[in-house]
Structures are given as structure tokens and as C-alpha cells.
Nucleic acid binder design. Structure first.
Lengths: 213, 213
DNA sequence: CCCGCTGTAATCAAACTTGACTACCTGCTT
DNA sequence: AAGCAGGTAGTCAAGTTTGATTACAGCGGG
């Protein structure tokens, strides 16, 4: 699974109704073009695909107030909302060491209630720990890890990343337990989207260092 | 860039001459199907593509000794070798927080000489540190990170990962400085491929825990 | 002897991703 | 008044990835 569907569903949902360019702009605002595959092509493709699959309804809109070709607005359906929460929960608990999935989920974690978020994150820690045990048990030869030579460094790297990920998750759990952030049903939600016309301080301006791949 | 080209080039190079299934088997032996997109389709596609681009030469082979359709053996060219080392150096120094690239490069790091490997890894640490500085400076609003709300956790996560990655790299540098592993030109290289007929202890047997996405 | 099972080897369609490109309008300049 | 820079909105072809499926050979049991 890639992060794009979760990102797009989440963006549309926060707006209630959004066209492609709005979604694209939100994702840029969140920095998603830096750490995920949220490029225009992928976004429009995801919108069309999910409309075809009944997660979004496409509304054709008259040639737009401000320039450009006729645009399509999308609205999330019941199926789409279910899919959204399924993806969100999955992304928070699963450990596939692709950081874009977790990043995307973090952006939406407050759509859950505080208690569920904590449960999912604790599950995440458990999953990472299990993964760690299984990997070390399964991949270390009986006659010691020296057998692996430098190949062992790959495993070493995975395990290090897993430990670091688990530690970070524990920190997040503490912050959430400590009352940080506003979760579902706790009053005025934090608004993470740009209103129509609001300027985007993090738009694709000067090149960011990450571009130096 | 994805890890697949580096993996495939490296595998072919170690064999001298290899057909798709051999490459596929090596990658499985290295656990690459767990942490990268090294699925059959991608491997065969990469072989064909790189043959078209002159990095590999394809030799049609008679219908094979042991079952299956006629197979094609691939041999790396001079261009392919250059590309291999370019990719390898890039993968060691770049920081794109996609762990599969680094993992792949780790598997081949001993194809460089010890001194160059150290230089590249030190460069990697520098790149990560620069990235960290740039990101924190660029993405933290003037009026403090609290402005970001829970969205700030995404950045927090990136930064934590970057720090962890830098720390791990420093550890690796120490181990290599301390004389670990056998690098290019230091005698008998470590053999990380399966000989024809050798059984693969890490083949796709029982499900690994990572499959629980 | 032939049927299904396993292992070897590769292909294919469908989905996804990428990066460049089109098209249109507004406002500012010359 | 022409033109062009810049913002808005989206499309497209080419390339890549995925997961399922095909094709063939050898082997063992009934």
C-alpha cells in the first residue's frame, strides 16, 4: 500500500468537497510532496480511481471562476469514509518501514478519539517488537551472525531502525497521554487545510535540500 | 531511484553471468524480497530494460536442463559496471529516507575499497546533518512549532529518523575503521550468492512476520 | 502409464508513478 | 494595446510495479 490514497481521502474529507488542485495544494502545505509520492499525476489518478471504485463522487463543475480547464469536485462517500478509517488504523499499527505511510497517518491521527489513537500506537509498538524478535531469530544462522559477513549489516540496520521507530512511538504515546493535541470529540479541531484563497507558505518555491537525492 | 537496478546489476556482476531465476534467488537469499520491491516481475523487467539500455548483454540459452521455458542469461557490460558503481556510491551517500536503497548498497559496499567506503559513509553523515538543519529551519514557523499542532509530529518523526540514521552510520564507520569485513583488494571476497544447486535457507518458505502489513 | 504435485523459469494485464506538457485566465508592463 | 509572467487546473505518454498466471519437466503413487 502506498500513502497516496490515505492522503487524498483525508484531504477530501477535511474539505467536505474538493477538486484536485485543492487536494494537491493541501498535500504541499503538509510537506507531503517531500516525503511521499504526492505528485500531481498520482493525485489526479487516485481521485479518478477512487471515484470509479465508489469511494468518491465526482461532480462536474462549470469552467471555474478563476482560470483553467473545467474542474471536477469530489465528495467522499460512506464507503470512502470507511476505507479512510481502515487505512488510517492500518497505517498507524503496521510496520512496513516505509516512513511515508506513518507520516500520512500522523497527519490524520486526530480524526480518531484519543483512546483509540493510544491503543493503535501501543499496538504499533508491539508489532515492531514482534517483528524484531522474529527477524533476529529467523535470519541469524545457528553458528553466529559472523557467518553473514557484511550482509549482516543489512539486518543490523533494520533492527536499529525498528528500535528507533519503537522508541519514537513510545515518546508520541507519552505526549498524547499527557494531553497534547485535540482529538475527535474534544472540541474545535485543528485545521490542517488551506481555505480557498489562503496563500501557501510552504509551496514549491526554492528547492529544498531533500531534492538532492 | 529504486533499489531494483542496483540489486540486479550487483547480482549479475557477482555471478559473471546469470539468468533471471538465479538473480531472483540471490535476492531472496539476501532477504531483499522483504525490504525492497524485488518481486519476479520487477526483476525480469529490470533485466530486459537494462539489456535494452546496453548495461547487460542477453544470451539466449537452449531450453534449459531442468524444466521451464527457454531462459536467457545476462552478462554485465562495461557501461553496466560503471552504472553499478555510480548507483552504489549514490545509494551510500544520498539520504532519501527510503531504507531499501541503503540496504541494497550495504550488500555491495565491499565492492569498493575500504577507504572509499569510509569517505562515502562520512559524506552520508554530513548529508543527513545538513538535511536536518535545512528541514528544521525551513519548516518551523517563526512563532514556534506549536503553531503546527499535531502536524508537527510528522516533522518530529522525520528528524528523529534522520538522527537515528546518522547515529547508525557513525557506528558502521567505526566498525569498518576497526577492520571489520573484507573490502575490494583485500583478498578472498565474501561470497554472498548461491552456487548453482545450493539450497536457499531463506527462501520463500513459511510466512515471515513482515508480511503482516 | 497417467495424474497430480512440486520446482524451475518466465510472462502478462492492470494498476500506479513520473515528469513534462497543455490550456486558460488575471494583472502588470512596455 | 500587445504581450508575457504567474497562478489555476488538469492531461498524457512512458516507464515501473504488482500479483496472478502460464509453461514445462521430473517424480511418486495408484
Amino acid at each position: 500500500m502506498s500513502a497516496i490514497r490515505l492522503l487524498v481521502l483525508g484531504a477530501v474529507r477535511q474539505h467536505g468537497r474538493a477538486h484536485g488542485y485543492q487536494v494537491r495544494n493541501d498535500l504541499e502545505y503538509w510537506g507531503a510532496h517531500e516525503w511521499s509520492n504526492a505528485k500531481p499525476g498520482s493525485i489526479y489518478h487516485a481521485l479518478k480511481q477512487m471515484a470509479k471504485q465508489g469511494m468518491l463522487i465526482a461532480h462536474e463543475i462549470a469552467p471555474s471562476t478563476a482560470g483553467g480547464p473545467p474542474r471536477t469536485e469530489y465528495e467522499i462517500t460512506e464507503t470512502g469514509t470507511q476505507e479512510y478509517f481502515t487505512l488510517l488504523r492500518e497505517s498507524l499499527t503496521s510496520y512496513d518501514q516505509k516512513p511515508d505511510i506513518l507520516s500520512a497517518a500522523l497527519g490524520f491521527v486526530v480524526d480518531l478519539d484519543r483512546e483509540e489513537a493510544l491503543e493503535l500506537l501501543e499496538e504499533r509498538v508491539r508489532v515492531i517488537e514482534e517483528w524484531r524478535t522474529a527477524v533476529t531469530e529467523h535470519y541469524v544462522p545457528e553458528d553466529g551472525p559472523e557467518q553473514l559477513g557484511h550482509i549482516g549489516e543489512i539486518m543490523n540496520f533494520w533492527v536499529h531502525s525498528a528500535d528507533s521507530g519503537a522508541q519514537w512511538t513510545r515518546g508520541l504515546i507519552q505526549r498524547i497521554k499527557g494531553g497534547a493535541y485535540t482529538f475527535a470529540g474534544e472540541g474545535e479541531p485543528f485545521v490542517g487545510v488551506l481555505a480557498e484563497g489562503e496563500e501557501n507558505p510552504y509551496g514549491t518555491g526554492e528547492t529544498h535540500p531533500e531534492d538532492a537525492r
